[in-house]
């Protein structure tokens, strides 16, 4: 079966449903956060619950929850290098906001909460 398709009960091959705006934002936020210099990796937590499901795929370390104004509040759980973390958080937010604007999703992007769970070297090894 080709990627991005699913098998219908009748046997017909249907295109996979498009990701919801929530999942699109979660993927965008995670991708842009991991691209920022100083971010080592995302952290799904010891029980692996800090994830957003995108079909069969799991976006580890990011959750998106709808708010009362229909925007999505994002929470990113990250492991970073030993750098000024508050400045790093500002950089991550700015990059995600720019990415959401380019993708036409800025209307749906709510506050971006960032949790630095640990510090580590670029290899992922704890310092």
């Amino acid at each position: 079966m080709a990627e991005g398709t699913s098998k219908h009960a009748s046997g017909a091959t249907l295109p996979a449903p498009a990701a919801s705006e929530r999942v699109e934002l979660a993927r965008l936020a995670l991708t842009h956060a991991l691209a920022v210099d100083g971010v080592v990796r995302a952290d799904a937590g010891p029980l692996g619950r800090r994830v957003t499901r995108d079909g069969s795929e799991r976006l580890a370390g990011v959750t998106a929850i709808v708010l009362s104004d229909d925007r999505y509040g994002m929470t990113l759980h990250l492991v970073a290098r030993v750098v000024p973390l508050h400045l790093l958080a500002h950089g991550i937010r700015a990059r995600i906001q720019r990415g959401a604007a380019r993708a036409g999703l800025e209307h749906a992007l709510g506050p971006i909460d960032i949790v630095f769970e640990d510090v580590a070297e670029l290899t992922g090894e704890a310092v």
Binding site: M74, L85, H86, A89, Q97, P111, D113, I114, F116, D118
Partner: peptide, 8 residues
């Protein structure tokens, strides 16, 4: 105003 930064 754009979100919270939490440091474990």
């Amino acid at each position: 105003e754009y979100g919270t930064t939490t440091i474990a």
